[in-house]
């Protein structure tokens, strides 16, 4: 099981009290849900800040990027695209949690 690099937005890095990237072990199928479950397991204070507590869905102003692709609207249980999964499990690219542009 390889470690996946996860980049958090600045506010969530502050909340989780981490600097730089987070390295995560994601057991089993690699999809949004398993990756975010692993992230929240390690940093419980992030629960509710990326996915809505009540619905479990991505919060409106959160985006997920990797390998120059917008994965935000992928189904949570769908395996990440093969090229993305290969790149992030190899540590070549990070999985990025991004605060969306909003505010005008």
């Amino acid at each position: 099981m390889s470690e996946i690099r996860v980049v958090l937005p600045a506010h969530l890095k502050n909340l989780a009290k981490v600097n730089g990237e987070v390295l995560l072990n994601v057991p089993g199928l690699l999809c949004q849900r398993t990756l975010l479950d692993a992230l929240e397991e390690r940093f419980p204070m992030l629960r509710g800040t990326i996915r809505d507590r009540a619905t479990g869905r991505r919060r409106a102003f959160i985006r997920f990027y990797a390998c120059e692709q917008d994965l935000s609207n992928e189904l949570p249980d769908a395996p990440l695209p093969q090229d993305v999964a290969a790149a992030i499990t190899a540590g070549k690219d990070p999985f990025m949690v991004v605060g969306a542009m909003a505010g005008g």
Binding site: P9, H11, L12, L15, M45, G48, T49, I50, D52, R53, R59, A60, F61, I62, G99, A100, A102
Partner: peptide
């Protein structure tokens, strides 16, 4: 609006905080 609700608590009069 981005990250929702967090509750922070300080036990030293506001010097340091923990969620």
């Amino acid at each position: 609006g981005w990250f929702g609700q967090v509750i922070q608590r300080s036990d030293d009069g506001g010097l340091t905080w923990d969620p």
